[in-house]
Design a protein around this nucleic acid. Structure first.
Length: 552
DNA sequence: GCCGTTTTCGGCCCGACTGTTTTCAGTCG
């Protein structure tokens, strides 16, 4: 079964091959199409069946035809032909850090080098020394790149955002502590809350870039400083994560935040709009000739282009710019809108003190309710229910302003009578039983139902569909957040499009550094969710001015 | 190969950094 992810991967490979062949604009066209396909909420086959492939941004006649060929035959003749023309190792060389298509092509055509092993041999034999443009330093860098590639297969792969999060917060904290008067913010795909991040982009305002760079270079877990100029420094952490630090003038901070937050497609569109209006946008500001018309804040950058400010999570050139041209965008859900947690597990050992800890944290966050999973059953074992002491402790709590909900998690094999016996106020449906397993009936049912723990097949985009259908038919909300068993932003968008509400995972009860809430919130925002689209969000008391935006 | 509020052809973001260079090419984001 051909999948969207496989099709996108093929187009990315085609782009690399065309790069090596020296094509100028086609590679980017194929990559753009691949990026679009990655964010689709529907199968390509369904879109093709409606004859609407050309509505996908970046997909025109030629690529549309290749998609149809792929759906019909599982192959793309053009791709097969390119693979015959270019040795696979040449693309590998191109992907080495610091090398690119031009260099890989030269090794191939001028030295007959068809892959990394042959390149190593060529270096050892001194065959690069006679090549114009290759001095000793460059040859050494290539040698290192080859060694690193061998040492870390898959090195440079994108990291799940929840794994990058603690590192990002630690760096941010260190920089802020040592330069109190300056702005220090993270931009890039991390700020857009993409599911994965390739590197971290940090922006700092300062009059003394050298001091900032010194602080940055002295962070504890740095493996190497890769480059350091007057405005930019790039380091690699011991974990392999790349971190870029840029020092910018305060007058350019907004423009730099827009520029380095991206996405690339969003920026390209902004620049096109600017050009059409006689303006120029770069990381220093918006200019009309010599005149600076914006740059200190993100708002004035967008305003100079006659656009409303666009939240970072939406900056993917998926129509947000056109919407911002019409006026302010509908507000997205914010952290202050989250009014409760629907899905906190009591462990079998935690007992009453664990309940107290959850309640205290929920109060600290000013939540209105807390959904505790007090009974659970697991496959092949009898239902485990919290012991009597915990239940009586729960009954004794009358937390001011906090309502305790009791929840039940149904696992495969659990039966409805079991559930009724414990009188669930709401029900958490696990994955694995889509459409076949037991579920609560509508009559006398709970006020809030939740589907959490999604399990899908290899193709997540396809596998998530039955769950959203199930949520729709049962009136359940679906949980969004980091981790493979929750919805990511793409799936969350599918849910919202189907009229299903999201539940934001809050990480309540985890340690204070736990990234669940900011990431879950970010995913919901990327999906375009406002307060009404989130089951555990409500209008904040007092309302009004509580927004905080790094780009301001 | 795609695209259009200067549309069906002629463009395609643009600046920092590095290494190898007497003025630039390649890579990266």
């Amino acid at each position: 079964m051909p999948s969207n992810a496989e099709a996108a991967e093929i187009f990315r490979n085609i782009a690399d091959l065309l790069d090596v062949l020296g094509e100028r604009f086609k590679p980017e066209a194929y990559r753009r199409a691949a990026r679009s396909i990655d964010t689709l909420t529907e199968d390509l086959a369904q879109i093709a069946a409606r004859d609407e492939l050309d509505t996908i941004p970046g997909v025109g006649e030629a690529i549309g035809e290749k998609i149809r060929e792929y759906l019909g035959t599982g192959h793309i003749a053009y791709y097969d032909r390119l693979q015959k023309d270019v040795p696979p190792g040449v693309v590998e060389i191109m992907r080495l850090p610091g090398l690119g298509p031009k260099t890989a092509r030269r090794f191939w055509t001028e030295l007959g080098v068809g892959g990394p092993p042959e390149l190593s041999d060529a270096i050892a034999a001194g065959r690069l020394d006679s090549l114009k443009g290759f001095g000793p330093r460059k040859i050494e860098l290539i040698r290192e790149a080859l060694a690193t590639a061998k040492a870390v297969p898959g090195g440079g792969a994108r990291l799940p955002i929840d794994e990058a999060y603690p590192t990002a917060m630690r760096i941010l904290k260190a920089l802020r502590e040592r330069s109190r008067h300056d702005r220090v913010e993270i931009a890039g795909s991390f700020r857009r809350r993409r599911e994965t991040v390739g590197d971290l982009d940090i922006l700092v305002t300062s009059d003394e870039p050298e001091r900032v760079f010194d602080t940055f270079s002295s962070l504890s877990d740095i493996r190497e400083v890769q480059q350091r100029g007057t405005t930019k420094e790039t380091v690699f952490l011991k974990s392999g994560l790349q971190v870029d630090l840029r020092v910018v003038d305060p007058r350019s901070f907004g423009a730099a935040m827009v520029y380095f937050t991206g996405s690339k497609d969003h920026n390209v569109r902004l620049r096109t709009i600017a050009r059409d209006r006689g303006l120029k946008v770069n990381e220093y500001g918006v200019t009309r000739g010599e005149e600076i018309v914006g740059g200190r804040t993100e708002e004035d950058v967008y305003a100079a282009l006659r656009l409303a400010w666009i939240p970072p999570e939406l900056r993917e050139n998926r129509g947000e710019i056109e919407a911002a041209a019409q006026g302010p965008l509908p507000p997205l859900v914010e952290e202050a809108d989250v009014v409760g947690d629907l899905h906190v597990h009591l462990s079998s050992e935690g007992g009453a003190s664990e309940v107290d800890r959850f309640v205290a944290e929920a109060r600290r966050r000013k939540y209105r309710y807390l959904g505790l999973i007090i009974a659970r059953s697991t496959a092949g074992s009898p239902p485990w229910i919290a012991d009597d002491r915990v239940l009586s402790h729960l009954a004794s709590i009358h937390p001011t302003g906090l309502e305790l909900l009791r929840g039940v998690e149904i696992a495969p094999g659990a039966s409805l009578p079991t559930l009724r016996n414990v009188s669930p106020e709401y029900v958490v449906l696990p994955a694995r039983d889509a459409g076949t397993g037991p579920g609560p009936t509508a009559s006398g049912g709970p006020p809030i139902r939740l589907i959490a723990h999604f399990s899908t097949g290899p193709d997540r985009t396809v596998g998530i569909h039955p769950w959203i259908e199930r949520a729709k038919s049962t009136g359940a909300a679906v949980e969004v957040g980091p981790g493979m068993d929750r919805l990511d932003s793409n799936a969350a968008r599918m849910a919202l499009e189907a009229g299903v509400r999201l539940a934001i995972a809050t990480g309540l009860g985890a340690d204070p550094e736990d990234p669940t809430l900011p990431i879950a919130l970010g995913f919901a925002r990327r999906a375009g969710a406002g307060v009404s689209g989130v089951a555990n969000a409500g209008a904040a008391e007092g309302g009004g001015a509580r927004r905080s935006r790094p780009g301001r």
